[in-house]
Amino acid sequence: MSAGSAVAARIDPSARREHILAAAEACFVRNGFHRTTMQDLAREAAMSAGNVYRYFASKEDLVLGLAECERARGALLVAELERDGDRRAALLGIITRYFVSITRETAILRVDIWSEATRNPAIAAMTARAEAEARGWFVETFAALARSPACDPAALYALLGPLMKGIIVDRALLPGYDPAAAVAQLLALLDAGLDGRLPLASTPAETGR
């Protein structure tokens, strides 16, 4: 954080929260969620632990805060990309932002949150809400862009969703990973699906599971 931002963080409560969240992100990426203590966060933020607790009662609150910031940034990006009414450009912009340009640090943090969601009900609920929102947007966008009645937007997302997550996992686990080939495959499958050229499996809702 720049000197000017640091000054703002001392004055504006919302800026101070952002300052603490940035420190938490750096600590979680460097040390992992469980190895990071509130004292580590306080040192990273150049604040006392007591001041950190004024804004976030626990590490869980910090994770939820980070996830909410990411959700808000995503919603803002979607709104900006959809402003001119070009749904395909918006879709490609989202894919570029989240799967081509994603930094390893962001991918590591996302995988850490997914891992914590397997043990923490509050984080699991937040992750489920985020997944439902993402699925809803993608399915609606696929439906708007479908070029054939044979296109099944829900089944197309069921096919592409795991590939999207796999790109993030590989970005987190493999130093120097280049997602270009995986993203090219993603786009090829997307175009085939929109054309109705994929033998898509039935979704759970369709099979009664």
Rank of each mutant, 00 (worst) to 15 (best):
S5N: 10
A155C: 07
M38R: 09
S115P: 00
E80F: 02
Y98M: 11
D40R: 01
A8M: 15
G161R: 14
S14A: 14
V7M: 10
A45D: 09
Y98R: 15
F138D: 07
V169F: 12
A22E: 14
A23G: 05
I123S: 05
R35N: 15
I94G: 02
A154L: 04
A144W: 11
G193N: 01
L186K: 03
L159Y: 11
R87L: 08
M1N: 05
E70H: 10
M164K: 07
A24W: 06
A46K: 06
L156M: 12
S202V: 02
R10S: 12
I113K: 06
N120V: 06
Y55T: 05
L64G: 03
D61G: 06
A158W: 10
R87Q: 13
L173Q: 15
L186C: 00
A79G: 15
D152Q: 09
D40H: 15
R73F: 08
L189A: 06
F142C: 02
L189W: 04
L187K: 10
A107T: 11
D178L: 02
L21G: 00
R83F: 04
A130S: 13
D152G: 02
A79S: 13
V7I: 07
R87T: 14
A57Q: 12
P13R: 06
A67D: 08
A182G: 07
L190N: 02
R87V: 15
I113S: 01
A90Q: 03
E116N: 03
Y55N: 10
G176R: 07
L109A: 12
A192R: 12
F56E: 11
M38Y: 00
A158Y: 12
G50M: 06
A143Q: 07
M1I: 02
A26W: 02
T103H: 09
G193T: 05
A182S: 15
L91T: 12
M126H: 12
I168H: 00
K165L: 10
L76M: 14
S58Y: 04
E82C: 05
E70F: 04
V29L: 01
C27V: 05
D61F: 05
P179S: 14
P149C: 04
E82T: 09
L156W: 02
A184S: 04
A72V: 13
A117K: 07
L41V: 11
V183S: 04
Y55H: 14
R119M: 06
V52W: 03
D191C: 05
A181V: 08
E18N: 09
R10M: 08
A67L: 14
L21T: 09
A158F: 04
L64W: 03
M1Q: 08
A125V: 01
S48F: 06
E70S: 12
S58I: 07
R54D: 08
L194T: 08
I108C: 13
L145A: 15
A172R: 05
R147P: 01
T106C: 03
F33M: 11
G196A: 09
S48Y: 01
A24T: 08
L174A: 12
L76S: 11
L200F: 02
P121V: 09
A49G: 10
I108Y: 03
A46C: 10
E70M: 03
A180P: 00
G74H: 10
S58Q: 11
P162N: 11
A6R: 15
V183M: 01
R43H: 14
L145V: 11
V100C: 15
